[in-house]
Each structure stands twice: as structure tokens, then as C-alpha cells.
Write a protein that binds this DNA or RNA. Structure first.
Lengths: 151, 151
DNA sequence: CGCCCTAATGCAACAGGATTGCGAAAATTC
DNA sequence: GAATTTTCGCAATCCTGTTGCATTAGGGCG
């Protein structure tokens, strides 16, 4: 059953189109997956979710993600498990990525803390030039608090 | 020429001893390397420096670093290049690791910004429990500022 | 509408950091 | 100094991510 999800897919398509580059099924699908997710996803999760209709090659997913990132349609977040996580940048690609993140020490999930802004006035050694500030709170997410059963 | 470096090596040995576990050449040497370094080192750098007298196996270095980390004698920092960097924790292993880091976007070097302390009062979604706060400033280190010649 | 050019995809092979299994070596204990 | 148990070294393996290259398919243009 081709029960398409109109809104998200269309938003994705429109965002890809707006870059002026080619609108391919793979780009749209991957971006749609990111837009639909409430948190940052690993390459693995993205690949799995994007392959529901037809498959997308592993390498293509990597390349699409790199492309999305370089066009500010997605953000790339380094986790402690040495795997990148990706998150849709939202509808305003012009805006930067200067909010904070929360990372679960147990399951590795990453969410954005949109309200928090990192301090920008930090003293560096002489000769050092700051570019971005990253603020990551680590801890346990609601799912991983001991005492709760795993879903 | 066995020109030993007395102080650092001894400090390393003492720190390892204090854990109650076995005091092996490999643990002491690796920790001494970390203590001597002004910045966080990659596994590669550590291995190279630790092998000056006799060699230490690659895998052993990994295991020693993991051991040091789990005993709070070293800290493990995730970089954007997906390689771990390690730094001695200093003489007070009880203390946490709640200072900020600077990471060079060009060469990847990581240094600690000991004076900076991250905000501890950050609002999280309900049910989330914070454990650590990581503040990382990214930019260019003095070596990598354009216009300077590479050493 | 269909052709063409080029960008993008898929496949396979590769790269490099990190991990695991297991027998050998060595640090404490007695 | 022998026993015991941790730790080491070596090889093989895993896993994320990358590269090369032939094939496919956007989408501009006639």
C-alpha cells in the first residue's frame, strides 16, 4: 500500500529543490527521515528507515548525508561512540547550529536543547581563535533511567 | 643511555599503585606519557611515545587507556575525527572532569580550559537526568591560524 | 516528447580505529 | 620460589566510513 505521508515528504522535497541541485529520490527520502525523527539519528537508523520502500545503498546514504550537511539542511553531531548522528536543520537553513545537545550515556540518543545557548565569551590562550561553541549535557534520558522498564 | 625522567615516571607509578591494582611497566609508561603531555593525545601519539624504550603492543595501549579511564587516572575525549584522545586526570582522581575543552578544527588538537566551568543549571525535558556537562570551544589553535607558517 | 550531458547512484573493494579470543608472560601472594 | 591470577602480545575480526569506477537517471534543451 503506497500510503504516502504527504506533508513531511513534500517539505523535504521542497527543501532539496530550494538548493538548486538535483532532486533525487534518495535525497528527499533521507531528508524526510530526518525531518520525521524527534532526535538525531545514526547512519544505521537512517539507512534502515529510508529503505522501507525501496533500498538506498549504504554509501549513497553517507553521501546524501554529507550533501545535506554541506547545504545546511542537516547537522552532523559527533557522539561518544564514534558514530555520527544527523538531525534535520529545520526550515531555516540560514540559521546556525548554536544550541545545546543532550546525549544519553546509556542509549546514545541525542536531542537538541533549543532554549539553551552556550556562553560565547570564553577566554582562550593567546593566538587561539574561537569559531563555534558546543555545549553537551550528558546523562540519562527518560527511557534509560533505572527503574523504568525498557519499552 | 638510560636518561630516566625521575619525577613524572614516579608520579605515574605512584598513581597506578594507589589504585590497588597491579603496577605494570605498560600502565606506568602510558600514564607517564599522558602526564608529560601538554594536551590530549591520540592513541597513535601515545603508542609512539610509549615505545621509546621498549615497545608496547597496540592493543595493550588500548587496554591500558581504558583501564586508566575507568580508574579516573585519564580522561577520554571524543573528537570530530572519530578517534579518542586521552589526557591525564591530574593528581586528584576524585575530582570530576567538569572543565571545558578547546578543539582545533584544523589539526584536531585538544587542550583543557581549566578556568572555564560549564553552567550546571540547564533545563532538560521531564524525566531526563543530567550527569556531566561538556563545553567544547572549537576554532583554530595558534599553530593553525592562517598566515602563520607550519612549524 | 525524447536526447544528451552531467551529476548522482550502486557496487565492491578498501582504510583505519578499535575490539575480541586465546595462549604466553609477569605481577602479587603464600 | 612456586602458585595463582591478572595482564600482555599477537592475530584475526568488527565496524564505521571512504574511494574508484561503471551504470543510472535528473532535467535542460531541441
Amino acid at each position: 500500500m503506497p500510503a504516502v505521508e504527504p506533508t513531511i515528504h513534500d517539505r523535504a522535497e521542497s527543501l532539496v529543490q530550494r538548493t538548486g541541485a538535483r532532486v533525487t529520490r534518495q535525497r528527499v527520502e533521507v531528508l524526510a527521515v530526518l525531518l520525521a525523527a524527534p532526535r538525531a539519528l545514526t547512519h544505521h537508523e537512517i539507512e534502515k528507515r529510508a529503505s522501507r520502500s525501496r533500498g538506498i545503498d549504504r554509501v549513497t546514504v553517507y553521501r546524501v548525508l554529507e550533501w545535506l550537511t554541506s547545504h545546511n539542511l542537516a547537522h552532523k553531531i559527533a557522539g561518544d561512540d564514534r558514530t555520527w548522528r544527523f538531525k534535520a536543520a529545520g526550515d531555516k537553513p540560514e540559521l546556525g547550529h548554536d544550541h545545546a545537545h543532550f546525549m544519553c550515556n546509556d542509549c546514545g540518543d541525542v536531542i537538541c536543547l533549543d532554549e539553551v545557548r552556550a556562553a560565547r565569551d570564553i577566554r582562550l590562550p593567546t593566538g587561539y581563535r574561537p569559531q563555534e561553541v558546543e555545549l553537551t549535557v550528558k546523562g540519562l534520558c527518560a527511557e534509560c533511567i533505572p527503574g523504568r522498564r525498557h519499552s
